[in-house]
Design a protein around this nucleic acid. Structure first.
Length: 339
DNA sequence: AAAGACTGCAACCGCCTGGAA
DNA sequence: TTTCCAGGCGGTTGCAGTCTT
């Protein structure tokens, strides 16, 4: 909770990047019931939107951002109050495993819950819960992963975040030597020529981005029979074979990247809700060609997927692998993608 | 009972994106 | 094509309440 305050000329910064909350006369801090009522009544009457001018029109001494946040996270009638139910918690865990810290996307799949609420719940409950279970909350993998080491967050608010621009990986440029003695295989996929990719079980992999945020083509080894793209690679998967004798089960595979990229299959997400992937049912092959219907819930909640669409198939594949080998058995065969 | 530590979460910050001008 | 702006997002902060010593 922030200290209630009224921004005065002395407290106003000259920072031009924050025009909305730094204006003279703008109130900050917790909302009063009176302010809530004014805002709620106004939005019920006039509707959402035009947040910058809304405070003035509604007669509130708040910035537009603050109004929007208050409405979205608290006043909206659809906001569900109360504790996160176990099934909701389970869904959050599953979606986070797939989407990473895409709180708005996760919230879009959990009716009545806001991104802020889910984010808070994750940081205060779920991440600690996973750590107590020996699972890295970022990767959903065992904490003693040999490739990525994470310090457990302190017991305070501090949450260890990746220094990854745009949620990409901070892993080093990979090559065999940097990955130790393990046999490293690098496979590229180009969405324009993406077919026949059948991920072999017990593979470890992650993605590599260059400074321009492009997935990097590093090397190609077709040794494990995965698809090799002869053209310019727009997506790169790095497959690392486990050490001989290692036995990976389920989520214990060294899945490094947890889908931190702005692309994903809408239909795939819908399938998540239908529990195609998470339940006991056999893993179903996603329809990677499908696009969401305009106006569908998937479209509404996954609008940011429209960018970087050239590599989302790779992300789906990554997600698939994260579910473990048993489920992958049905996925390993006859993967076809025809754009 | 008091003080310090810890927790939960509302709210703010700064950046990014897309659309309008 | 460029610039500006509104909206949206993830990360972070800071305080009230709770717990522990």
């Amino acid at each position: 909770m922030r200290n209630p305050s009224l921004v005065t000329s002395s407290t106003t910064t000259s920072k031009s990047t924050t025009p909305c909350c730094s204006k003279v006369g703008i109130k900050r801090g917790p909302w009063t019931p009176e302010e809530d009522e004014i805002l709620a009544n106004y939005i019920r009457r006039e509707g959402e939107g035009r947040w910058r001018t809304l405070p003035k029109r509604a007669g509130l001494l708040r910035c537009g951002k603050s109004c929007r946040l208050r409405w979205m996270n608290y006043l909206r009638p659809s906001v569900k109050r109360g504790r996160i139910a176990p099934d909701e918690e389970d869904l959050i865990l599953r979606l986070h495993r797939l989407l990473g810290n895409r709180w708005s996307l996760i919230a879009g799949r959990i009716p009545g819950r806001t991104d802020n609420e889910i984010k808070n719940y994750w940081n205060t409950h779920l991440s600690k819960k996973l750590i107590s279970q020996g699972i890295d909350p970022r990767t959903h993998k065992p904490l003693n992963n040999y490739l990525v080491s994470h310090s457990p967050p302190s017991h305070s608010h501090q949450v260890t975040h990746d220094p990854i621009p745009n949620s990409n990986l901070n892993l080093p440029i990979s090559n065999s030597s940097e990955l130790g003695e393990k046999n490293v295989t690098i496979t590229t996929m180009n969405t324009a020529n993406y077919q026949g990719f059948a991920p072999t079980s017990n593979l470890d992999y992650y993605q590599q981005y260059d400074d321009q945020k492009n997935l990097q083509q590093i090397n190609v080894d077709n040794g494990v029979g995965n698809y090799q793209n002869p053209d310019d690679a727009t997506a790169t998967l790095i497959m690392e074979q486990p050490a001989a004798g290692s036995s990976l089960q389920g989520n214990e595979g060294n899945y490094i990247e947890n889908c931190n990229e702005d692309m994903f299959s809408f239909s795939f997400l819908d399938s998540l809700m239908n529990d195609n992937l998470f339940g006991n049912d056999q893993l179903q092959q996603p329809n990677t060609n499908a696009l969401p219907e305009q106006g569908s819930a998937a479209m509404a909640s996954t609008q940011s997927f429209s960018t970087h669409g050239n590599i989302w198939e790779a992300e789906i594949m990554s997600s698939m692998l994260a579910f473990g080998n048993d489920q992958l058995n049905s996925f390993n065969t006859h993967q076809q993608y025809q754009p």
